[in-house]
């Protein structure tokens, strides 16, 4: 019998995979895609919640998360284009400082 726990399990694992992507990759485009994976995996928990607590509201939250994800991608790609113009690369080194 399928339960909420299954939804949660899948959701956490996919969230974890997305988070690894953000840490593990240096290319901004890949980081953006990994962020999308993270946000989408949260939606799995929400739809499970909607189904098993018989609540309409989580579905609305999914729509709002979709808005946030869309904004994130649009802004991130804008930054990527700007970075390509300024530096000629879209590679990021999150943990290194600007200098030294």
């Amino acid at each position: 019998m399928l339960g909420f726990g299954d939804y949660l399990l899948v959701s956490v694992i996919l969230f974890f995979v997305g988070a690894i992507g953000v840490i593990f990759r240096r290319n901004l485009i890949y980081i953006l895609m990994s962020l999308e994976i993270m946000l989408n995996s949260i939606n799995i928990t929400l739809i499970g919640l909607a189904r098993y607590s018989r609540d309409t509201n989580p579905q609305v939250l999914i729509l709002f998360i979709l808005v946030v994800a869309a904004v994130e991608v649009a802004v991130g790609l804008g930054i990527a284009i700007n970075l390509m113009r300024v530096k000629g690369t879209v590679d990021v080194d999150l943990f290194k400082s600007l200098k030294g």
Binding site: I79, N82, L83, V86
Partner: peptide
């Protein structure tokens, strides 16, 4: 410098807000 600061703020803000 600004381009890099923007990038860093964006990625970490998005990551932590997730």
């Amino acid at each position: 410098f600004v381009a890099e600061a923007t990038l860093k703020y964006f990625v970490l803000a998005a990551f932590s807000s997730a």
